[in-house]
Design a protein around this nucleic acid. Sequence first.
DNA 1: CTGAAAGCGCTAACAG
DNA 2: CTGTTAGCGCTTTCAG
Lengths: 328, 328
Amino acid sequence: MNPTIYDVSRLSGVSTATVSRAFSDPDKVRESTRRKVFEAAEVLHYYPNAIARAMARQRTDKIAFLICKKDATILDEFYASICESIMKESNRSDYQLVISTASDWNQTPNTAQSRQIEGVILGGSASADLVTEFQSRNTAVVMVNNRLPGVDVPYVLSDEYGGVRLVVEHLASRGHKNIAMLAGRFSPYIVGERYNAFLSVTKEFGLKVSAQNVKMCDADVESAAQAAEELLRQKNRPTAVFGANDVIAAGVMKAARRLKLRVPEDVAVVGFDDSAVCTMLEPELTSVHINCQRMGELGMEHLRALLAGETCPSVTVVPVELKVRGST
Amino acid sequence: MNPTIYDVSRLSGVSTATVSRAFSDPDKVRESTRRKVFEAAEVLHYYPNAIARAMARQRTDKIAFLICKKDATILDEFYASICESIMKESNRSDYQLVISTASDWNQTPNTAQSRQIEGVILGGSASADLVTEFQSRNTAVVMVNNRLPGVDVPYVLSDEYGGVRLVVEHLASRGHKNIAMLAGRFSPYIVGERYNAFLSVTKEFGLKVSAQNVKMCDADVESAAQAAEELLRQKNRPTAVFGANDVIAAGVMKAARRLKLRVPEDVAVVGFDDSAVCTMLEPELTSVHINCQRMGELGMEHLRALLAGETCPSVTVVPVELKVRGST
DNA sequence: CTGAAAGCGCTAACAG
DNA sequence: CTGTTAGCGCTTTCAG
């Protein structure tokens, strides 16, 4: 059996209340007393029992990171990275982090587990219903990498528009006038943002994008490769293709290779996300780097603020960076 | 305030003890009584409070998955996949899962957090000390994807030897006689296994591997590419290169491309792990598929057995599968 | 099969 | 600044 606050109280000769204070609110205890308490605790190998504390305080200090996406692999490179960052942040705070997926969660929305959660970071395509459910339960919500019209929670977003702008700017500066975009059906919000940004920025740059130069495909490499082949087989072949993410861009590169087109001489390729695959390709893939770590940090920071009753910005946009590599 | 067991007791007209039993040990309660209880609970939206339960029972049902590796990205594709599987499994059990990294953990080994953990799955290069620490604290330990000589815990491993065997067999059947291996400095245990297996299997197949055909490099693509260039620039160039994992193999492919060697005609390349990058490369990379999902499941299964006081096999080896693709 | 009652370890008024 | 004390919500003997 682990030692309890009573053991420490007895050994140090102070009341249990004082021991409690020494641990959870040191300032309320005189220095000398505090030392006595800590000494006794040391001797006994005492450490506060979080369960009992949670019970008495009526709060758990427990938060969750919920990944909301439908694909087979939930923890893809992108979310794994955000997740890692949230893990780090939560570890340095007193919050306990539970990581789960929206689907697992939905199966047991009323479980003991979920009841104990005081705040949640929603990553990816969470539904408005899910948010409402949490709010109705008085759970603080922060959303990362998604935006829901009409839903009022703090958002942490990456600068999708800015990223696309960098891409188009870069391609334009390289003299490309006929740029295509290949979008994959992954997160609707993200794809939408990048797509709209592409249309708007190309227009701004006076580049006309013909209808056949904007294509949708499934989110896997092979679909992308096939769609890209069609794109690249056109009479008026685009000289550059912007893939909505790196997987799509990898598909474009595969297509180029299959068609014996040289990258970047015959066709330049750009991706988005700057995932690990970028440097594994040859030539390496130019891509937009997303600061996942920062997004995770901000998510935690905002959640903490919310839980502390402070306010936090309703939308935070994290800057991106273009990594120019051999593919352009 | 949430309803408590007292509210249910009052509304249903039975004692709190019976309500408690109805929820945690239904068989001990007469059918009709049980129904009354559940009805009342339904009406009140009552759900047992896990904290109070943990407090009374003196157990938390809390387990952890600790990832032990030094690299910058902890949740790489491999561990993310195991992690996901453990998450799924734990969600269907009554255990609560905490995911963390060994380094975060080490910084606060005595924290409230760690005290509450009843069992832990160690993923990756955990140290014997860490295991000892857990054991001394009476925490059940299961190890995944690593093996520590002299440390007696249940191990869940992938069939590294079998995988390498498949690789060599495959290459030999394609007529390759001069096969090189490029190993990267990632997990010592894994690299060691694959390396030894390679030496032993090639020998078994009567293939001689010269010293300059076995190289070590750092674990990143660029180091691999450089090392591979040396390998491929030799007079007696190997006709096939086995990369200790997919990242290394991707490096080999880059080197081949830089040297204007065709894959697979001039040099065949094989990887290990069957990660997402395999299909993004062109040609696609032949690789050994590791059943991460199964490894996670088994890890959970064994931990559960341990916690239930049952026994479980001391070593479980998960079969692998060779995915033959265009690179060979 | 069910009930009464004693905790589980800690916190938070309230009093001093 | 410190002590007393009454819970937090549930489980678990021990009786009945």
